[in-house]
Nucleic acid binder design. Structure first.
Lengths: 216, 216, 216, 216
DNA sequence: CATGAATGAGCATTCATTCAT
DNA sequence: TATGAATGAATGCTCATTCAT
C-alpha cells in the first residue's frame, strides 16, 4: 500500500492468488479456507480475488485447471518417452513420476481430490480423466511390455497397476502437510527405492521360477 | 415421527448421531457437514445432538473416540494372534486387516484423517498412536520374523512397512465414497490378491536367487 | 429422586418455584435466568414449572403477584397504624419500612422493577399502584401532619416524599446482590440512622427559625 | 440506504453503534437486546457491529469504556474545582453533578449497573472505582470541610455521603426510561431543590441548636 | 485495477416449551 | 403429578460477495 508491493505485473496476480489458494486448500481444506485467507496470503485484499474469479468455487476449479492441469501435461510429456527394458522402465517411471509430480505442487492433487472430490464431481471427472487414467496407462504400458517380453511374470495387469500406484500416491500425500503416512515422509527417496525393490522383486520372472510354480 | 418420539431408546441416540456424523463427515467433509444434516440423517431435529455433545467439534472427536477407536481395538485384538510361516502370516494379516478394518466403518479413518487431520491435531495424534503405530508393528513383526528365518529377503524393514501399508490404505480409501483410486474399488478382494502376489514375490527369498545375486 | 425429596406437600411446589425464580431473577435478571435454573433451584426438573405456570412470563408475574404483593399488603397493614408526633412517626415509619420491606424478600422489588420494568409494563403498573403510591401516601401523611402542626417546616410535600424515599429504596437495592450503592450495604441500620438524623434535621422547624424566615 | 452506503464516515460507525447499544441496553436490558436491534438503531445491518466489536459482551464493555468512562472523567474534571463555603459547595456540587451526569448519557450508568452489574463483575469493579468512589470523595470533601469549619453539624460522614448520594442516583435512574421513582421524573430540578433544602436543613449547625439539644 | 466497509444469507448454538412415559 | 428427551424458533456470529471510492 505504502510502498509498491505490486511492482510485479498485474498478469501475475491471478497466478499468485491461485497459488495461495492451493496452499491453503491443501492445508486447511476448501470449506475452512476463507477468501480473506487467500487474499492475505497472496498479498492483496478481500475484493481482489473477485476481479479475477467469479467466486470461491471458481477459484477451486481454477486451481485445478490453471495450476495443476498444465503441470500434469508437462509431466506426462516427460513421462511419455522413456525407454529401455521393462525393469528399467519401471524404475525410471517411478523416479520421473516423483520428480515431476511428487516434488512439485502436483503432489497436492491426491489430498485435494480425496478431501474435496465428493463436493466437486466435475473436478473429480477431470482428475480421473487427466491424471488417473494417463497414470494408469503409463504403468499398463510398462507391465504389458514386460509381460510380453517374458521379463515380468504374467500378473493381473489392471489390478497391479493400482497396486503399483498406491505407494506413489502415498508418497505424494505425505507431502501434503499433516497427512499421516507412517515414516515415509522423512525420506521419500528411500521409500521409493524400497518400493521399487519390492515391486521389481515381485514382478520379475526368474529362470528357476518357471519350474518352481508351473509344475505345482 | 409425530407418534413415536420415544420409540428408540435414549441410550441409542448418541450412537445413532455419531454414525450419521461419520457418514456425512466422510462424504462431505467436516466443515461442509451441517449439524442439521447430521440430525436429519439420525432421524432427530436440530437441537438433539446438543443434548449429547457440546458442539460440532466434540461430535467429530466423539466419532473418532466412541465409534472408531473401539473398532480399532477390537480389530487389533483379532490381528494380534495370527500364526504360521512369514508368507502365511503376511497373507493372513492383509486379509484380516481388510475384514476388520476395510469392510467395517473403520475404513473411513484414512479419508477422515487425510482430509481433516490438519484441523484437529490432537485427533491426529490419537490416530497415529492408536492406528498407524500398531499397524506398523504388525507388519514389522512379520517382516522381521520372515527375514530372521531366511524366508524373506533382507529388505529395509521400516520403509517396506510403509510400502506394504500403502495398498491397504488405498483400498480403505476406495471405500470412502468419491475417492478416486483407479479401478480398485470395483473388486477390492482381487486387488488385495494382486497386492499379496506382488508383495510376496518381492519379499520371498529363493534358492537360486542367492546364487544369482550374491555371487555377482 | 432416590429418596423422597418431595415429602413436602405438593401445595408447596408453586411457592418453592416462585421463590427460586425470585432469587434468580434478582441475581441474574429475567432474560438470563433459564427455566432450568429455576427448576434446579426449586429441586424439580424442567417440565415441572409448566405444571403450575403457563410460561416464563407468567412465572415472573406470579413472583410479583403471589410472592411480593401479599408481602406488600402485610407490610402496609403494619405501617398503617403507627402513631405519635410527626418526628416520631417519621422515625417509626422508616424503621418499620425497613423491617417489613428491607429485611424481607420485598427488598428485591426495586431492583426487579428497575431492571425488568421496561419489559413488563403491566407489572410496572401494579408496582406503581401497589407499592409506590401507598408508600408515597405514608410519607405524605406524615409530612402533612407535621407541617400542619407546625412541627415541620413548610416544605414542598410531593418532592420531599421522593427525597425521603430515595435513601430507603437505596437501602433496599443494597440488599439485592451485586448492586453498587457505596458502603451502605455494610450496616444498613447505621445508614438509616444517619438518614433520619439528616432528614429530621432538615424538616424540623425550630423556635428561632420562625423568626428567621417568616418575617422576611 | 441503497444509494449512500458511505455517507457516514467509517470512524463514526463504532460510536454510533455504541450509542445505539447504550440506548437499547438501558431500555430493554442486555439480554433482551438483540444485535440486530442495535444494528437497526445504528442504521446498519447485522454484520456491521462485528466489524468493530468481537461480540455482544464486548459491545457492552465498550459502551462503558468508550462512551461512559470518558464522560465520567470529563464530569469529574468539572466537579473538581468548585469553591465557596460548605453550604454553597454542596449546592453547587449537586447542581453540577446533575448537569454533568444527570442530563447527559451518564445518567444511564446506575440503571445499567443495577440491572447488569451482577453478570459483568469486571465492569462493576470499574464502575465502583471510576464512578462510586470519586463521587463519594466529592461529598466527603464537602462534609469534612463543613464540619471542620463548624458550618455543618458533626454527622457520621461516611454514612451521610451515601444518604446524600441516594436522591441524586434516584434522579439519574428517573431518566433511564421506565424506571419507577415516584413523580420526581416530572421535574428533576424541583426535586433536587427540595433535596438540597432538606439536606442543608439537616446539615447546617444553628446558633440556638447547641443549647437546644445538648442540655437535654 | 485495487480497496475494504458493508451486506445478508447461512450456520452453530441456546433454551422455552411440549408431551410420551 | 413429575420426568426429561425432544423440539424448533430465535439469536449470535461468520464469511462469501458487492460496490462506492
Amino acid at each position: 500500500m505504502l510502498c509498491k508491493r505490486w511492482s510485479r505485473r498485474k498478469e501475475a496476480r491471478p497466478q499468485e492468488i491461485l497459488e495461495a489458494a492451493l496452499a491453503l486448500f491443501v492445508q486447511k481444506g476448501y470449506a475452512a479456507t476463507r477468501i480473506e485467507d487467500i487474499a492475505r496470503e497472496a498479498g492483496v485484499t478481500r475484493g481482489t480475488p473477485y476481479l479475477y474469479f467469479a467466486n470461491k468455487e471458481e477459484i477451486f476449479k481454477a486451481v485445478i485447471r490453471e495450476l495443476l492441469l498444465p503441470e500434469i501435461e508437462e509431466a506426462s510429456a516427460q513421462l511419455a518417452n522413456f525407454q529401455g527394458n521393462a525393469a528399467g522402465l519401471l524404475r525410471e517411471l517411478v523416479q520421473l513420476w516423483w520428480k515431476t509430480m511428487g516434488e512439485t505442487s502436483l503432489s497436492a492433487l491426491p489430498k485435494l481430490m480425496i478431501a474435496e472430490g465428493g463436493n466437486f464431481p466435475e473436478v473429480l471427472d477431470v482428475y480421473e480423466r487427466e491424471f488417473i487414467h494417463p497414470g494408469q496407462s503409463l504403468f499398463r504400458r510398462v507391465l504389458e511390455m514386460g509381460i510380453a517380453s517374458g521379463e515380468f511374470r504374467p500378473v493381473n495387469v489392471e489390478q497391479t497397476i493400482d497396486v503399483l500406484a498406491a505407494p506413489i500416491v502415498m508418497a505424494m500425500l505425505s507431502r501434503s502437510g499433516n497427512v499421516p503416512c507412517g515414516n515415509l515422509a522423512a525420506d521419500p527417496q528411500a521409500y521409493l527405492d524400497s518400493f521399487i525393490d519390492v515391486a521389481l522383486g515381485g514382478l520379475l520372472a526368474r529362470p528357476g521360477e518357471v519350474a518352481c510354480t508351473a509344475p505345482e
